Amino acid sequence: MKIDIQKDWGKIKSHFRTCNRRNMHVVISSVDSDQMPTVTPIGSLFLNDDQTGFYFEKFATKLRKSSEQNKNICVLAVNSRKWFWLKALFKGKFSDYPGVKLYGELGEKRDATPREYRAFQRRVQSTKRLKGYHYLWKDMAQIREIKFTKAEKINLGKMTKEL
């Protein structure tokens, strides 16, 4: 079910923020050079105000390789919060999107601006004292831009019909 990507962009951004807090990642699907689908979990996706976004591209090697052949991607964000689902199951309908897919095209890889870097550091701030932070996130420096062209809500029949 299509969503108007321009009119509903604020709601889409809100959904992605909620999902990132709950799941700590989204999934980006692409097609590799053998024309096989592949998915990559990304914990650093940010959505801008103009139907664009970016993610830090340190570990996304398959996604980077896929983009050399085909820049089209799909990003999936699902609200996996248990109470969100139990409440919907009890009421027989969802109060908000259970999941949203964004379709788009990967853009240039470039150095992150100071603002982009600070946004990421705020997101992972609570982990700075942990050993894994230094292995994963301390030296994030380059981002990949994304331009989104289409959005869809996850269709779960009658449970999402009113959304």
Results as ranks from 00 to 15, higher is better:
residue 69 Q to H: 15
residue 95 S to R: 07
residue 5 I to V: 09
residue 59 F to G: 03
residue 39 V to K: 07
residue 28 I to S: 05
residue 36 M to D: 08
residue 43 G to D: 07
residue 112 A to G: 05
residue 62 K to V: 09
residue 109 K to V: 14
residue 10 G to M: 00
residue 132 G to V: 08
residue 151 A to Q: 04
residue 61 T to H: 13
residue 142 Q to G: 01
residue 116 E to L: 06
residue 11 K to V: 08
residue 109 K to A: 10
residue 128 K to G: 04
residue 112 A to S: 11
residue 147 K to V: 11
residue 63 L to M: 12
residue 24 M to F: 12
residue 79 N to G: 02
residue 69 Q to T: 11
residue 82 K to R: 15
residue 145 E to M: 13
residue 160 T to M: 02
residue 149 T to N: 13
residue 141 A to N: 10
residue 151 A to F: 05
residue 160 T to D: 00
residue 105 E to C: 04
residue 74 C to Q: 13
residue 70 N to Y: 02
residue 29 S to L: 01
residue 54 F to A: 00
residue 78 V to I: 15
residue 115 R to I: 07
residue 105 E to S: 09
residue 76 L to T: 14
residue 150 K to A: 09
residue 42 I to V: 15
residue 65 K to H: 12
residue 23 N to P: 03
residue 80 S to G: 15
residue 67 S to I: 00
residue 11 K to E: 14
residue 101 K to Q: 13
residue 96 D to Y: 07
residue 101 K to L: 14
residue 78 V to T: 10
residue 89 L to M: 14
residue 153 K to G: 05
residue 82 K to S: 14
residue 152 E to T: 10
residue 108 E to D: 10
residue 106 L to D: 04
residue 144 R to P: 00
residue 160 T to F: 01
residue 113 T to G: 04
residue 139 D to Y: 12
residue 55 Y to W: 10
residue 160 T to Q: 00
residue 108 E to F: 02
residue 50 D to T: 06
residue 153 K to E: 09
residue 12 I to K: 03
residue 87 K to N: 15
residue 163 L to G: 05
residue 121 Q to R: 14
residue 21 R to Y: 07
residue 53 G to H: 01
residue 66 S to N: 15
residue 158 K to E: 13
residue 133 Y to V: 07
residue 54 F to K: 04
residue 66 S to P: 10
residue 122 R to S: 10
residue 52 T to F: 08
residue 109 K to Q: 14
residue 18 T to Y: 05
residue 103 Y to C: 04
residue 88 A to N: 08
residue 11 K to Y: 06
residue 77 A to K: 03
residue 140 M to E: 13
residue 20 N to M: 15
residue 80 S to L: 11
residue 26 V to Y: 03
residue 36 M to K: 12
residue 152 E to S: 01
residue 90 F to K: 12
residue 134 H to C: 03
residue 6 Q to T: 04
residue 92 G to N: 05
residue 125 Q to Y: 09
residue 154 I to G: 02
residue 153 K to P: 00
residue 89 L to K: 07
residue 51 Q to T: 11
residue 67 S to G: 13
residue 74 C to T: 12
residue 57 E to A: 12
residue 93 K to C: 06
residue 9 W to T: 03
residue 155 N to G: 08
residue 100 V to C: 03
residue 43 G to C: 06
residue 16 F to I: 00
residue 69 Q to P: 00
residue 121 Q to C: 13
residue 108 E to V: 08
residue 86 L to P: 00
residue 37 P to T: 06
residue 140 M to L: 13
residue 73 I to V: 15
residue 52 T to Y: 07
residue 94 F to G: 01
residue 62 K to M: 11
residue 145 E to H: 06
residue 120 F to I: 11
residue 129 R to P: 01
residue 159 M to K: 13
residue 107 G to L: 02
residue 80 S to M: 10
residue 74 C to L: 06
residue 51 Q to A: 12
residue 123 R to G: 03
residue 35 Q to V: 08
residue 157 G to V: 07
residue 106 L to M: 15
residue 10 G to R: 04
residue 103 Y to F: 15
residue 7 K to W: 02
residue 40 T to H: 04
residue 159 M to V: 08
residue 101 K to Y: 11
residue 53 G to E: 02
residue 160 T to A: 03
residue 137 W to Q: 04
residue 49 D to C: 02
residue 30 S to W: 02
residue 125 Q to P: 01
residue 144 R to F: 00
residue 10 G to L: 05
residue 143 I to H: 00
residue 42 I to L: 01
residue 47 L to P: 01
residue 35 Q to I: 07
residue 88 A to P: 05
residue 88 A to L: 09
residue 121 Q to A: 08
